[in-house]
Design a protein around this nucleic acid. Structure first.
Lengths: 353, 353
DNA sequence: GATCTGAACAAAGTCGATTGCAATCTGCCA
DNA sequence: TGGCAGATTGCAATCGACTTTGTTCAGATC
């Protein structure tokens, strides 16, 4: 769209941004005054301030955040490390975190690990190089090594099920056991006795927690834990597990999935195998994402309140800036949401125990 | 966990990061040498380089990206502005963008607008202050004003349906018309004649494009455009629209939704109204997210290849760094995916036209 | 053995903003 | 009108890394 005839094309010249100096000289004041006018620091005459602000806007001045962070030795950026942004549970949590951070005039940068070890390291390094003010670990597969590394740099951390205790670390407790127990008991009351479980990589602590909670809940009811399979926390993993379960004899009458995504994968597999959900087999999810709500039948699941989680995480970081060393524990309560994906065990009306 | 008895608690002292100076003095070389060793610039003896690298690791040195960007007057960060990360379509696109960027040793920062104007402005300002190297606009509700503003700072932009033409801007073309036409024709061949449409905020250009494509497709088939409603690009908007459609007389026998999320909202509403999908009414989505795949019935939808989109966007930016002024257009091809959410129009076998 | 050459490294200026302290100005009071 | 306190504003150092411009030194050449 631009005729490129002149050798002095704008695009060829190294571009210079508008700096605080430009604003200062345009306003006929020093850079210090401009800085104070923009940041409400120092006492500036109202008229001067207005003048500077007007000029800054006219010149389209956008303060270089790199320079600002460097000079003030203080960043207003928070980091979030998350495993899978495609999972609506995390998407909601991250958004909630960002919204809360924004209200405190903090920016947020997000790094995804994709349940992958090298990416996990990269994410941590990213935060360290960016010199963020605090980090939220919205995933629990983070290796202790990198947590230590972050804490060593004196950066506050918030997360759940963190394998590290330190005054810079705020742990958000999630009572998986009560959540999973409610699910299992719900199925029990529907007459189910053979209740399977589809988990994920047990090397990840919060995934392991759910599995252990399942085992404990079964034992508490005097039930033999049914088949336990592993997915990959995503629908395709659930589908594969579901296909495997179709072949299992005796087939469970209900399956508890570690999250909603796995549950919908399971259901697709069961239907492909000619089973009716919940007529032939009941399925439960975990997280109560919008998927669970709009899926048909609506998933029986456990609400993890990702919005509260994200908000809590951001607040925990803000708090830890003010009063150092006070690591309040925070707790997220879970509650069962009953949907149509669970029903009476086949033939349970006649042989209810 | 830490006993705080000493007044010289580490946490109370202003923390100093390990800097390049620390590494330099530890290694007995100048900071210049350290910089060269780490960045592979300049000619350094292999032994010196190794020595420096080892020490940097031992001291846990993480180069301050703020200082680095400032000094080199060049950032290796790309920005992505996206409307709704909760929509799997965008989640996949963003991830694909990040992966591609990472391969080119670029970091990515993401800002979400939530279809909200003030947030849109904030996102743009965020990019400007961060002095990113390039921006991908994975949403089309960005106001031209901010696009201009970014281009003015000489920052390359890539996006789809951008309302600005400039040598710094790469436009990714998406042929909505062909995609929507395939959907409408598919329904037509199934015997549908009253085909409704649920769109979104028509102030957003790519949303408007889909609606216009629908109208054009209907006209091309000699059909009267059925009821046209607006959602909010999310499931709840689809649900509300579906509820409204239940009351419409004559009720359409098929509804085209502007995306998958709206489609699942619609279906929930229709089922709540006692309708069978696709027995009583057919529904189509758009985007072919994993939702469409795992939903039951599988959604008939249009694959937009978000992964290719994200990758293309990142590549376009990388390209624009090398050769300035070459703004290659890129095109994403769409293709129809037929699922079980569409079926013959009720009674169409007897009165097929 | 003196000179030249290029590799390897150091010194110092620079990026754009912040901030403590000094300098200036203003208004008020004596 | 002179002086002083308090309100404004400027000066200049600083943050941590990069990068241009030297400087040094080993080896090669004659």
């Amino acid at each position: 769209m631009l005729k490129s005839k002149s050798p002095n094309l704008t695009a060829d010249l190294p571009h210079r941004c508008v700096t605080i100096k430009d604003v200062a000289s345009a306003a006929g004041v020093s850079t210090a005054t401009v800085s104070h006018a923009l940041n409400l620091t120092g006492r500036i005459r109202a008229k001067t301030r207005q003048h500077v602000l007007t000029l800054a806007r006219e010149l389209k001045y956008y303060p270089n955040r790199n320079a600002s962070n460097l000079a003030s030795r203080l960043s207003r950026t928070l980091g979030v490390i998350v495993s899978d942004i495609e999972n609506p549970f995390f998407a909601v949590a991250v958004r909630s975190f960002e919204d809360t951070a924004r209200q405190g005039r903090f920016e947020t940068i997000v790094s995804e690990t994709g349940y992958d070890l090298p990416l996990m390291q990269r994410a941590a390094e990213n935060m360290l190089k960016e010199k963020v003010r605090g980090v939220a670990i919205l995933t629990s597969e983070m290796s202790p090594r990198w947590l230590e590394e972050i804490v060593l740099q004196d950066i506050p951390i918030v997360g759940f099920d963190l394998s590290i205790a330190n005054e810079k670390v705020t742990n958000i407790r999630i009572d998986y056991l009560s959540g999973v127990r409610e699910v299992v008991e719900h199925l029990y009351h529907l007459g189910h006795r053979r209740i399977g479980f589809v988990g994920g990589r047990v090397t990840f602590k919060n995934i392991l927690s759910r599995e252990q909670s399942y085992l404990a809940s079964m034992k508490a009811l005097g039930l033999e834990p049914g088949p336990v399979l592993s997915g990959n926390q995503r629908p395709d993993g659930g589908y594969a597990a579901g296909m495997a379960l179709l072949e299992t004899r005796p087939r469970p009458t209900a399956v508890v999935a570690l999250n909603d995504l796995t549950a919908i994968g399971l259901i697709k597999a069961f239907r492909a195998g000619g089973l009716d959900v919940p007529g032939d087999i009941s399925v439960t999810g975990f997280d109560n994402t919008y998927l669970a709500h709009y899926f048909s039948p609506r998933l029986t699941t456990v609400d993890m309140h990702p919005d509260i989680l994200g908000k809590s995480a951001a607040e925990a970081l803000s708090d830890s800036f003010g009063n150092s060393g006070v690591s309040k524990e925070r707790t997220i309560s879970l509650n069962l949401v009953i949907g149509g994906s669970t029903g009476p065990a086949p033939g349970s009306e006649s042989c209810a125990s």
